[in-house]
Design a binder for these strands. Structure first.
Length: 636
DNA sequence: CTTAGGAAACTTTTT
DNA sequence: GTTTCCTAAG
């Protein structure tokens, strides 16, 4: 269990009997430690595999850990999951104990669903839609803080946030009515359950003997509380891993100080991994230069990455006149590297600060015939035609789902517009079928409403088990393909392609015997990383999505003030610190080659504006090398 | 209630 | 350059 580990890694694996805080730098082999630790606990400490709860940041990380453990021990560990999927597991079992309208078939609202719902509510409360993001953020903050009631928490905030309390309350009631939870609710309601229902808490506490949390710097306040609650009966059997310098999620509530808090409150032993096994020397030098200056509270936690690698590796910076040229140069470099036989396209990734940057890269890669793949969120499931159809299935599966109802009720148009929907909403008692039945309509609307009702009722009973069959019937019943041809004249072929792809996906779900709800849940809890294919292609993705991953060759384009660091971060010191950490994360993804670049001019909102090279370039140049000032491309 | 057309707003980062 | 919003005619 200890073979192939260095001294520090070994010490962390063998440590037992007291909480352990492991500060693990980028590429220092922390996944190795985590998996060997699981193996060690099972083999040496006779802890049952399913009694070890390991929390990771993404499903992909969980999957990878589970695979490695399985290869090592031929045992499939069942309790490696993300915070969100762990909470889903708890709630599927015990949500009734909350004493609300939810039942175990609750659904999860994604960002779009919850934004739509909230937008509607804001109208009713005469709050400007401009404040939508602020309201959503406030609600999220209230849920993450977990100080009793959400409404009370918001009321206690300063103006104008305290004005959002009523809207927040309505939002929560609507979610409940829809049997729906948003991402924050998953964790909030679970914690609430554990706090208020000792018997539920006790049951879950007793299920586990050992706790592990990865990426601890990215936990938020409520996740910390949740872990503390869960481990209360086994306070010594907890192991957390983190790196304060890879904190890149404070904007969504991550509290890196949780690392310090954990050290204090759990009286944890602290260990470090500073030896880097990933990157060559030049790459680490660059990363260390940029991360050099950090907040004082972290002064004694600084990890300086070291390597024994003989190879120097390559770091290059290239300044192009404008973004098209930059993209062309990247494409050329990729072609050049790929032609050497030692490199394949799959060895390379382009990491970007903002997703719109992928467009230019995409068109230049297309021109050069470079196989590429843009890794991004739910793109496919967000296509209008795909979402329409899925919302029909959602509504069949859960006739309380308001977001699905709103989308479906008049798509394709059936004469039930805004006014009519208001009438229906006023009639809502138990579910949308009932509301449709009870609404007073004109004769024509009655006919369409009844058609919709019978369509939903016809398939309602079988949608879970036979989603593909239902989808096919639905497309027929709605004459949906005709509607798409009519509605989207220009690109209807592509859209029909998408629908056909959706059919394929649901067919495979149906053949595998998975239910529709399981399929939806999988998708909603998946991370960007879960959508990366193994294919022979250059991956283009955001730096955030690349966290925890590595490639031999990494390109970092658009290193310009206003892009990286981003425009919005320029006003705040804390935000700039986070940009710096993000840049550090980006650099440390590379094993052998790191290609930095910027452009002098870039298109923004369809206008060309002048750009200055990022401050990070300046810092690297200054402390690293003599640099031909006119040369457009330099080796470091 | 629907549709078409033009204006306005818009880009961080995501489980 | 693209998506969303708004208005007015049918």
């Amino acid at each position: 269990m200890l073979s192939g580990l260095n001294l520090e890694q070994k010490a962390a694996v063998e440590h037992f009997g007291q909480p352990l805080l492991l500060l693990a730098g980028a590429g220092s082999g922390k996944t190795k430690v985590l998996t060997h630790k699981i193996g060690y606990l099972i083999r040496e400490k006779s802890i049952k595999p399913h009694r070890i709860l390991a929390i990771t940041f993404t499903k992909k990380a969980a999957q990878e850990m589970a695979d490695r453990v399985e290869r090592m021990l031929a045992i499939k560990p069942r309790s490696i999951s993300t915070f969100h999927s762990f909470c889903v597991r708890v709630l599927r079992e015990d949500i009734a104990a909350l004493g609300r309208k939810f039942d175990t078939k609750f659904i999860i609202y994604d960002q779009t669903d919850s934004k739509k719902a909230l937008k509607d509510i804001l109208k009713r409360f005469n709050i400007s839609p401009k404040e939508l993001d602020a309201v959503q953020k406030t609600i999220s903050k209230a849920k993450q803080a977990y100080r009793g009631g959400i409404v009370e928490y918001i009321l206690a905030l300063p103006f104008p946030q305290n004005q959002y309390a009523e809207a927040a309350n309505t939002y929560q009631r609507e979610l409940e009515q829809s049997n729906a939870l948003d991402y924050d609710d998953l964790i909030h309601h679970t914690t609430h359950l554990f706090v208020t229902r000792p018997e539920v808490r006790g049951k879950w506490q007793d299920r586990y003997d050992f706790f592990m949390v990865d990426e601890f710097q990215d936990t938020n306040e409520i996740q910390y509380s949740l872990i503390k609650l869960l481990s209360a009966r086994n306070r010594d059997n907890i192991f957390v891993v983190g790196d304060p310098f890879q904190t890149i999620y404070t904007w969504r509530g991550a509290v890196p100080e949780n690392i310090l808090k954990f050290g204090r409150e759990f009286n944890a032993t602290e260990m470090r991994l500073e030896k880097n096994y990933r990157s060559t020397r030049k790459i680490l030098d660059v990363a260390n230069i940029v991360i050099g200056k950090v907040d004082r509270i972290w002064a004694d936690k600084v990890l300086t990455l070291r390597t024994d690698k003989e190879e120097e590796g390559e770091v290059e910076y290239c300044k192009a006149a404008e973004h098209d040229e930059e993209n062309r140069r990247i494409a050329k470099k990729i072609m050049e590297l790929a032609s050497t036989k030692t490199r394949s396209y799959a060895d390379m990734a382009v990491l970007i600060r903002m997703s719109f940057l992928s467009r230019g890269l995409e068109s230049s890669f297309m021109q050069y015939g470079i196989p590429y793949e843009i890794v991004r969120g739910l793109a496919f499931y967000e296509r209008a035609e795909v979402k329409d159809l899925l919302c029909y299935l959602r509504l069949m599966s859960n006739t309380r789902d308001r977001a699905a109802f709103d989308r479906v009720v008049n798509t394709p148009s059936r004469g039930i517009g805004k006014k009519a929907v208001e009438v229906i909403t006023g009639n809502f008692k138990t579910d949308w079928i009932q509301a449709l039945q009870d609404a007073g309509f004109s004769a024509r609307q009655r006919v369409s409403a009844n058609a919709l009702i019978s369509l939903i009722m016809k398939y309602g009973a079988m949608v879970e088990e036979k989603p593909y069959t239902v989808l096919m019937g639905l497309i027929q019943g709605l004459n949906y393909l005709e509607y798409v041809k009519e509605q989207y004249k220009e690109d209807h072929e592509e859209r029909i392609e998408n629908i056909s792809e959706l059919c394929n996906v649901l067919l495979s779900i149906e053949t595998k015997g998975k239910t529709f709800s399981e399929f939806m849940e999988d998708n909603l809890l998946a991370s960007d990383q879960d959508r990366i294919s193994m294919g022979e292609s250059v991956k283009i993705m955001t730096v955030h999505a690349a966290k925890g991953l590595e490639w031999p060759i990494v390109f970092l384009p658009a290193l310009e003030e206003g892009i990286f660091p981003s425009e919005r971060s320029l006003e705040s010191g804390a935000a700039l610190e986070e940009e710096r950490r993000l840049f550090y994360v980006a650099c440390t993804r590379a094993k052998e080659g790191l290609y930095l670049s910027s452009a002098g001019y870039r298109m923004k909102f369809g206008r060309t504006s002048q750009m200055l090279p990022s401050r990070y370039i300046g810092e690297i140049k200054e402390s690293y090398f003599s640099f031909g000032s006119d040369s457009s491309s330099s080796h470091l």
